[in-house]
Design a protein around this nucleic acid. Structure first.
Lengths: 345, 345
DNA sequence: GTGAAAGCGCTAACAT
DNA sequence: ATGTTAGCGCTTTCAC
């Protein structure tokens, strides 16, 4: 029978609107075999005669055959896609994270959906739910999501958590202990005795963790630690918060993260306060920018790429078989990177 | 008939491995209607009786019904997903671009695949081809892809090009003319007479464009322009290239982009050359970092978000109907942002 | 080693 | 206004 679409293909080759993708049927017809044989030749080559297989492959090649993913996932129940949810793609802390995960999963043959929740806990849930329907698994980086919501999402989808602990799903975390202790020791040995911590969002898991560790380490070293008001975890937050640090009469300030530290640096510069001579400033994360600043920022380095790789392989691993093999996943160590924003008191 | 999976669901509610998603059939059965009615109630509510509709909606809600995307795309021929390809997600120039596009398309109900080509032209093609199969359209940002490859991709997929001109597919570009002229005028009026351009990758479309415009503008102003050796378009490239700029005996340097300018700044700082007193430095792009540096970078601002929005709506628009309505798409203007790295000669 | 047939979950004629 | 039916393109028993 004469099918209209074939007519179009034949007569107006360049009319892309009409050129429909070749199906497994077309390949089968051209190779003179049945569709099942084509399917086998492609997915389980060892099951089909070498000559037949070659004929099929040639036909597929000739027609530019690309299996229809929707049909495939419909029957297989798998989509071949993964999802990644982060609070903010534009945050330089997450950028390398996204990049690494992207390349890792792509290497494994998966495509990656990326969603950004604008640091908004409600959006985290919405994004996760929306994504859950169209992926085989999700890497979730949601520092402000409640445990309950986390659980409700993990119940419907294969989830790996990054950057926060969880008993709900396997998680990849960083052990900030070493980095924080090194930072506090560093500041202490430079002669500082009264220091400040400038916290990020109060409910953020990272912030709570950082606050706890700094408090502990300072107590252990006999450092007087002032906890300032929380700021937004961005440049502007640090810029606005810097005055409070100055007013507190400290000689060194631990910023919630590098972006905040950069803001502090800028405000201090504007007020004519010299860093590191008049005030020492420490960041957290070691984003690429930290080493490009002038002065370069002393900061606690987070092994972001290692976390990204670990999270990706943890998810990939769980996808093929081994469901939650290990109860808990790796906790990667952090360390202090000393640059030029810290000096003797 | 007693179906095994229902048994599991009933007896071990928490066993997520077994809990299969509710289908349209299950909803239909529960509501006492046919699957088509469920489909209609969900997709064309006006076609179904208000009471029936409510009953269907309730049943769907009760079962937590989520339509299977694969089945849907199979029959509709649309995936509901879009793709975005950029050279480097981690490049701060593209980051806001990705973020904006992500939020724009998500608002329109599409999910977004993001792929990164590591500034590699070959990877651009591979990524585009791989993506083409599973999306309804692609936003392509591939400054180094050849016209032919572009064409071959656009032949199979709905494509919108960003950041470069093309006769193959609708493109959203920026008109760097105003920005470049303002930059050159600015430098000229500060008394500089011999300046340098530090180019990026030779084959990059952006680089060729920037070089051309700077050459033109300098000639028009009577400025002596030295074109240095090409550098990698990153911090390290600028750092390594700075010495050549100094050796060239110029008093101002136009860097290929902000990242390169930052590298130049750092190297100049290391050599004790004061910016802007001994040397003026100008960037290009106005990445967020440019305003966070010390000194803050004078640079040509690119309307990245506007481009992102334009590209997204252009693609969205073409998806529903209006195929390539306008022959060419908007060209958005740039402007100079004067900060602290430029001063009188 | 290969083909026929059933069906994944959904939508869209077509019928009623 | 609703049900029946026929596929979308693919994989996978089950026969041969």
């Amino acid at each position: 029978m004469f099918r209209k679409r074939f007519h179009y293909v034949a007569t107006m080759d360049s009319a892309r609107e009409v050129k429909r993708a070749a199906t497994i049927h077309a390949v089968a017809a051209l190779a003179g075999v049945s569709p099942s044989t084509v399917s086998r030749a492609l997915n389980a080559p060892e099951l089909v005669n070498a000559l037949t297989r070659q004929r099929v492959l040639d036909s597929a090649e000739q027609l530019g055959y690309q299996p229809n993913r929707a049909a495939r996932s419909l029957v297989l129940g798998r989509t071949g896609s993964l999802g990644l949810i982060v609070p903010d793609i534009a945050n330089p802390f997450f950028t390398p994270f996204v990049k690494t995960i992207q390349s890792e999963v792509r290497e494994a043959g998966y495509a990656l959906f990326v969603a950004d929740t604008d640091e908004n806990p409600a959006a985290e849930v919405v994004a996760a739910r929306a994504m859950a329907k169209q992926v085989d698994g999700i890497i979730l980086c949601a520092p402000r999501m409640s445990g309950n919501r986390l659980r409700s999402i993990a119940a419907h989808t294969l989830v790996v958590i990054a950057n926060r602990q969880s008993r709900t799903a396997p998680a990849v975390t960083m052990d900030i202990g070493p980095g924080v202790r090194q930072a506090v020791t560093h500041v202490h040995s430079l002669g500082h005795r009264k220091v400040a911590f400038m916290p990020g969002p109060r409910r953020s898991w990272s912030n709570q963790q950082r606050l706890r560790f700094f408090t502990g380490a300072c107590a252990a070293q006999g450092l007087d630690l002032i906890v300032l008001s929380p700021v937004e975890p961005v440049y502007g937050g640090g810029y606005r918060g810097a005055d409070e640090a100055v007013a507190a009469g400290v000689s060194a300030v631990f910023a919630y993260n590098d972006l905040v530290a950069l803001g502090v640096l800028a405000r201090l510069g504007d007020r004519g306060i010299k860093v590191p001579d008049d005030m020492s400033v420490l960041g957290f994360d070691d984003i690429p920018m930290a080493a490009m600043m002038n002065p370069q920022l002393t900061t606690v380095q987070m092994p972001v790429n290692a976390v990204a790789r670990a999270a990706a392989s943890l998810l990939l691993e769980r996808l093929d078989g081994g469901p939650s093999r290990r109860p808990s996943a790796p906790e990667l160590a952090t360390k202090l990177v000393i640059r030029n924003t810290t000096a003797p008191c």
